[in-house]
């Protein structure tokens, strides 16, 4: 026998269920007067630095039907590639940008709309720069543990080609599942939960 490692175990996840809005976006589902606004609804203000972009994200099930009861959170660096987090030791992020947003999918169309800025590049563990990306976390009825993926940008071809994470994807045909298509200042991104076009999800 050796000494005990004496560690606790992580609380097991459970689905967010169909009524996730009550807790995370109460104003969105008609529960007014409890919080002044829904957390994560507005990401930028007039003083936020960087190029304004819009994200239009949908989540589709194994039949290609958009989920109308999912919730997406995004987490990203500021325009200079700095995170607004105590773990960011390289500098001070833009004080007018938290870098985190939350959006429930529209109950009719299934669309999530984020107004944010294009993130700068962040270093990988060995110092190489990763391509600009936004981290996504997706929960919904039927999803037992939140799904983690990344959104990269179609107009960053050169940076994407050098990205150490994208480089790890053995089946190159799956790389485009992580790349949002640019139209003007809008990026369109469909997350496929399963099937032929299944998005790459991470165990990170």
């Amino acid at each position: 026998m050796a000494q005990s490692l004496d560690r606790l175990r992580e609380s097991p996840s459970q689905t967010a269920g169909p009524y996730v809005h009550i807790g995370l976006t109460p104003n969105f589902c008609g529960i007014g007067g409890v919080y002044p606004s829904d957390l994560g609804a507005a990401m930028v203000n007039d003083k936020t630095r960087g190029d304004r972009i819009g994200l239009r994200i949908r989540v589709l099930d194994g039949t290609g039907t958009p989920l109308k009861d999912a919730l997406i959170e995004i987490w990203q660096a500021d325009a200079d590639g700095l995170y607004n987090s105590p773990a960011e030791l390289r500098g001070t992020a833009d004080p007018n940008f938290i870098g985190w947003g939350r959006c429930p999918t529209d109950m009719d169309t299934g669309l999530c709309t984020f107004d944010t800025i294009k993130p700068g590049r962040v270093p990988f563990a060995d110092g190489r720069l990763m391509a600009p990306h936004i981290t996504l976390w997706i929960v919904a009825r039927g999803i037992n543990l939140g799904l983690h993926t990344r959104l990269y940008f179609s107009d960053e071809e050169k940076a994407n080609a050098q990205d150490p994470i994208l480089a790890r994807i053995e089946h190159r045909i799956r790389v485009p599942t992580l790349i949002a298509e640019r139209t003007g200042d809008i990026y369109v991104f469909d997350v496929h939960l399963q099937g032929e076009k299944e998005t790459v999800f991470f165990d990170s």
């Binding site: 987490w75 607004n84 987090s85 994470i165 299944e198 165990d203 990170s204």
Partner: peptide
């Protein structure tokens, strides 16, 4: 978890891509 029916069409079928944390996962909003 097929006994929870909605999970059938909402569960990825391909393996997850293992990724040791980068700053993007280590940092988070407070």
């Amino acid at each position: 978890t097929p006994n929870y029916k909605t999970s059938v069409l909402r569960s990825p079928q391909k393996a997850l891509l293992a990724l040791d944390n980068t700053l993007s996962e280590i940092a988070g909003p407070v």
